[in-house]
């Protein structure tokens, strides 16, 4: 059994667990940045920018997100290739859209047709991260926008009374205080993000779902030293347990962070902590 679980191909599934964790780490950060940008745009006093921010937040509602995932990967790919096409080969005359075919000049292909395998994989991964960030950025923007509005008005008015400019008020008063209001929403988002990672499979990444299907399928003695029947069920059970453990651990960790953040805040929970301490 142990021999079986350490074959060369099995290393691939362990690596793909790492891929998932890397994706989570990168996406969490970029989505937060996207979300912050979106929320700032929505709050902006410049009307078109505010429309843009609100539109970005609103557009992800009402439609299944999986459709967005499928859509953005193709759309981004097309967008990048058209951009490179315009820059790299300006004297290309044939139309890009030829019926049902999308043709750009060979130099504009992304990744280049003769690039090694790992470049293709990295590019696919990059597209996936970008897609995840755009979709989750919209959710994060919504949460942060709500949190910014939840900070008591009096705090901002006090800051203005002290003569702070609009920008100073935003960075020194609003942003430090909004996190405690944003955290419940953001931790919910984190849970959703964890549970969205298997969708990587749909974006054509060789992730854990892919490998679980590959490795679990029945193997005949002809091709491998470790033949077995159809074990895919057990592989997916293992994935299920992995995700359960992951969400549980995150839940506990986020609870801790929340307790830290409420410390010294002018909220009900903060008051309760203060009273408990004395």
């Amino acid at each position: 059994m142990l021999c079986y679980l350490t074959t060369g191909k099995h290393m691939a599934i362990y690596v793909s667990v790492l891929v998932v964790l890397v994706l989570l780490a990168i996406t969490a950060v970029t989505a937060l940045i996207f979300g912050f940008g979106g929320a700032m745009a929505a709050r902006s006093r410049f009307l078109p920018l505010s429309w843009f921010g609100k539109g970005y937040i609103a557009i992800v509602r009402g439609v299944p997100d999986i459709a967005f995932f499928l859509f953005f990967v193709l759309a981004l790919d097309i967008g990048f290739e058209m951009l490179r096409h315009g820059i790299k080969c300006p004297d290309w005359t044939a139309p890009i859209w030829q019926g049902n075919d999308f043709v750009v000049c060979p130099e504009a292909k992304l990744p280049l047709g003769n690039a090694p395998q790992w470049v293709h994989e990295t590019y696919a991964f990059f597209l996936a991260v970008l897609t995840f960030s755009i979709v989750f950025g919209a959710f994060a923007a919504n949460v942060l926008y709500g949190a910014m509005r939840a900070v008591p008005r009096a705090q901002l008015e006090t800051a203005e009374a002290y003569g702070m400019t609009h920008r100073q008020t935003f960075w020194r008063v609003l942003v430090p205080q909004m996190w405690v209001y944003a955290l419940p929403g953001l931790s919910n988002l984190w849970m959703v993000l964890i549970k969205a990672t298997p969708l990587l499979f749909l974006l054509g990444i060789e992730d854990i779902v892919y490998w679980a299907r590959e490795l679990g399928g029945s193997k005949t003695p002809r091709f491998t030293d470790y033949p077995h029947g159809d074990w895919r069920m057990w592989y997916f059970l293992a994935l299920l347990v992995f995700y359960l453990a992951f969400t549980r651990v995150s839940e506990i960790a986020l609870d801790r962070i929340m307790r830290r953040l409420t410390h010294g805040q002018a909220t009900l929970a903060g008051e309760a902590q203060r009273k408990a301490a004395t």
């Binding site: 549970k195 990672t197 779902v209 069920m233 997916f236 059970l237 994935l239 299920l240 995700y243």
Partner: peptide, 10 residues
């Protein structure tokens, strides 16, 4: 606690 996607597969 687990993704619906994995539940389907399982």
């Amino acid at each position: 606690g687990s993704p619906l996607f994995i539940q389907f597969f399982f």
